[in-house]
Design a protein around this nucleic acid. Structure first.
Lengths: 183, 183
DNA sequence: CCTTATTTGGATATGTAATATCTAGATATG
DNA sequence: CATATCTAGATATTACATATCCAAATAAGG
């Protein structure tokens, strides 16, 4: 359908007004699911991007891009060449959600203090006042630390165990699904 | 300097490779700082966007945009017209960092589960398997809850108190800074 | 009543990051 | 040697954070 010169801003006028800024990229979800899948399928050698992508209906090329930082982080190992693919570098019990998040999103904190306090009102204060971190920044960092602690307490093994409790026989189901021929 | 047909991707080639996706918008920092400022200055009636912006060297028009959700959330009250501006709607002790974050960023969780489990491998499972939430999603939500709990435990009053401990006489300093004539 | 200073809401502009694809090169299988 | 794979980089597309501007409503003060 033609645009008729309508700008994006006008086209989006009716979209929901609520912004969601603090957002984790989908790559984290993909990575965590793929780790579970690799554990279920890991006995037959490395699993290729194509097979992992097919398992969750994901775009293969982009999934491959997302898996590469996991290799760099030492969560997965990769093998090139025919029959190549990805393997878990260590058992699920030794991989936490924090590991996955840090691998995909990087180590940066969610709250990035821009130190705006130094721009105006505080400008005349002695330099000693800025040695201590911004009180807002400190509070935000403290809260984020709680988040990271909770993420680090969740191993993929525990998550897999919960998933299997919800859907008994999941491991078998997965292996059967992959055994069936696909077009 | 002319572009010579160089694409953005090429221009950015040398930028840092690390991505930081989980990010809180600067508006949260601005909003929290402005609340502290409003408490320090609140006795002389409402404070205009222009004065708040000058206090931290922020763009006035955009700061005004960021303050509006705080009004909607009931953290600030606003008065239109000459001598108008913003006031705290309640004492700093009754405003938490969670209140500010929720006002600016909206109520959405950082981890948005796309339910990719339903796309492939799980497709043949009975519907009952999907009544329980995705185990990865549940773990992420639990960790985020810890973050929110910690943010909700931090009042702006406590943060202001810390700031004043770091820089004694801050309240006086702020009022003097604003009393001085500005071009 | 008029001028001025302000908030509010919408439209718009710009830059950057997430999402996604493609190609070339390296690597391994058989 | 042909094929299948990972790796790295370039590129394309879309969404969103950032930022500005304008019109309308509102209030203060002469």
């Amino acid at each position: 359908m033609p645009d008729r010169g309508i700008t994006p801003a006008v086209r989006n006028r009716t979209r929901t007004a609520t912004i969601e800024v603090v957002k984790i990229s989908e790559g984290v979800e993909w990575a965590a699911h793929c780790c579970l899948l690799l554990d279920w399928m890991g006995e037959d050698g490395p699993v290729s991007t194509a097979r992992l992508a097919a398992g969750y209906g994901l775009p293969p090329a982009y999934l491959n891009k997302q898996l590469q930082p996991l290799v760099k982080a030492g969560i997965l190992t990769s093998t090139a060449g025919k029959k190549g693919g990805f393997r878990l570098a260590r058992p699920l019990g030794e991989i936490t959600l924090m590991d996955v998040l840090a691998a995909i999103e990087g180590p940066a904190e969610a709250f990035q203090c821009a130190e705006i306090r130094q721009n105006g009102v505080w400008a005349d204060l002695p330099a000693s006042a800025f040695r201590a971190p911004c009180a807002i920044d400190a509070a935000m960092r403290g809260a984020e630390l709680e988040w990271r602690r909770a993420l680090a307490a969740q191993t993929l093994a525990a998550i897999q165990s919960n998933a299997e409790l919800q859907a008994p026989g999941l491991r078998t189901q997965v292996q059967e699904w992959y055994a069936r021929p696909r077009q």
